[in-house]
Design a protein around this nucleic acid. Structure first.
Ligand SMILES: [Mn+2]
Ligand SMILES: [Mn+2]
Ligand SMILES: [Zn+2]
Ligand SMILES: [Zn+2]
Lengths: 141, 141
DNA sequence: ATTACGAATGAGAATGATTAGCATTAGCAT
DNA sequence: ATGCTAATGCTAATCATTCTCATTCGTAAT
């Protein structure tokens, strides 16, 4: 199903700002974007949207299951397209580059850790903070 | 070594606010406290400290390795006494109860995941969000 | 005990991300 | 084309945290 279908099935009207935001994520230039990132990119491409609208739309998309929200170390949160596949993240402390990974054993043991202590796991967040090798690190100056 | 020694070896003067904050954590009533928590508890026990000072002291203690800072889901960050043992956390989404756990396999595979992708792991944060069994859940109403 | 000086504190202003309020506008069904 | 409701875009408000700066405290040397 396409963008329009996605929006409708989530009970959201197909509006200009929403379509713009959605296609930004689907264009796939950068997977992980903050509200500010989205706002600036839209402005840069000549699309005028309010920052408040960006925040609203991102949260609605998260509720609707279109996007996933992450809280990397620091302040602002980032969103990425929800493609069904759960994964965790490695973040470079120098350049901010993000790499995704999935480890079935880790997932398994989390469930187990929760169960053993009488918890019913709802979800989790796992962020690895590291430094990429110089060859890949985009850190400048 | 005692509190005073800790402070000195960190190059921090032994001041009233610092001693108060430190003993609050060492009293051990609650392991995980936010700046606001600390502030209120001190006020409640008749100790007058400024909120700004609490924030400053908590961060200094973190730098000094006396405390560890965590960002559980949501806004405010919490601190706990650094007792040398790294561990991760399970947080109840209903009542907020926090349980600690350590899984060597998970730790192992995180290092591996980072290494395989050309990252030098610096540290990580792993939070499991769950619901405790009714018998333990402190959620009210 | 007194002095002296830099570090620490406290009160409030400032910041930065995110949200709320509200008048105006734009989807969409009739 | 019309009308109703949801959506948008400003701006103002929140909230946690940090910054500023005048005042006070801790400490080491008189
Ligand atoms: Mn991702
Ligand atoms: Mn803990
Ligand atoms: Zn890097
Ligand atoms: Zn609970």
């Amino acid at each position: 199903m396409n963008e329009l279908t996605h929006l409708k099935s989530a009970g959201l009207k197909s509006t200009l700002p929403r379509l713009k935001v959605l296609s930004l994520f689907e264009s796939g230039s950068e997977r992980h974007l903050s509200a500010e990132d989205v706002y600036k990119k839209l402005l840069a491409s000549g699309d005028d949207v309010g920052l408040a609208t960006v925040y609203r739309v991102l949260n609605q998309f998260e509720q609707a299951g279109l996007l996933v929200k992450h809280h990397f170390e620091g302040d602002k949160s980032v969103f990425e397209l929800n493609q069904g596949d759960h994964h965790d993240h490695i973040v470079c402390l120098q350049c901010g580059r993000v790499e995704e990974f999935f480890d079935a054993t880790i997932e398994q043991r989390q469930k187990k850790a929760a169960a053993e202590r009488g918890f019913e796991l709802h979800d989790h967040s796992l962020y690895i903070y590291a430094n990429c090798v110089k060859s890949k690190c985009q850190y400048r100056s």
